[in-house]
Nucleic acid binder design. Structure first.
Lengths: 152, 152
DNA sequence: GGGACGAATGAGAATGAATTGCAATTGCCC
DNA sequence: GGGCAATTGCAATTCATTCTCATTCGTCCC
């Protein structure tokens, strides 16, 4: 139903992400726990645009005792380790997506539909603009807001 | 010292904005008050990237009794009337800028410097991407995060 | 100029997302 | 299997923002 359903490819990168995370955790003596694994696999399975509340609901289907604080802490860990990216749209919540899964967003201001896209040409121009201003870009966000075809 | 100091032109549009606001207010029987005028003129004078706290400080230099709630309410009014745009960067606050003053942002993740830019070519490509997905764009945000020249 | 009436204000309480302190629990290395 | 630091769940806290409500203020009408 959601736009995320359109994507079923995980781009061969779940292993890479898990390796990245394992390394990050090993480097600082962090532990792998049942809750973390559960949150991670739920996050991978759903694949994006999730806020903590939604993620918590999913996780609690499998373990009702997981607390919101743990989900917040785990998503922070995933973000710091580079496995996930935090995004802020207009509503006051943080949404997360797979870091490997780079894309920008088209957002329908009427029905809330989110469509992902990627455009090499735009990204190249972004780098050029940044270079002109002396910046080295490491990340970007681009969101286009408007009406989708069903909401004209 | 902030990046906003680089811009001193108001692009001949303050009058347009005020007309737009006056019309919006007249249409729904809203009243013009001392506080609103004060907030509006402070906002125009500073011209962008302000959060409520900063705006409130400025406003209170002229009238110490203005409450935060009024600033929130006024900024909401300005946003709804199309005079201001609300932006969300990584910190948990809403920043406002003049709607007429369209631009995108380069943000230094190290020192927090914000540089504004505009790129016709990118904007044209954005419209093209949106069209391809059946969207009609009415607004967009683009933020490039990285290191500025002083923070390499 | 003097109401009347609805909109706006200020102060503080309430909300909601996110973070933190803490006692109890759990991974993990020996 | 024991020890010990990391992690968890819960409750309490923080911080931005919104709401409530009694009071004040703008504006329209006479």
């Amino acid at each position: 139903m959601s736009a995320a359903d359109d994507r079923s490819d995980h781009r061969e990168s779940r292993e890479d992400s898990e390796r990245m995370l394992a390394r990050y955790m090993a480097e600082r003596g962090l532990k792998s726990t049942r809750q973390r694994s559960l949150i991670l696999s739920t996050f991978f399975q759903v694949g994006g645009h999730l806020n903590v509340e939604e993620l918590l609901l999913r996780v609690r289907e499998l373990d009702p005792k997981v607390s919101a604080a743990t989900v917040y802490r785990t998503m922070k860990l995933l973000t710091e380790s580079g496995v996930a990216h935090a995004r802020h749209f207009g509503d006051g919540q943080t949404r997360f997506e797979l870091a490997t899964d780079h894309h920008d967003h088209l957002i329908c201001t009427h029905c809330g539909r989110i469509v992902e896209f990627e455009d090499e040409e735009i990204e190249a121009l972004q780098l050029a603009v940044a270079r002109r201003h002396g910046f080295t870009v490491v990340d970007h966000k681009m969101e286009l807001y408007g009406r989708c075809s069903s909401c004209v």
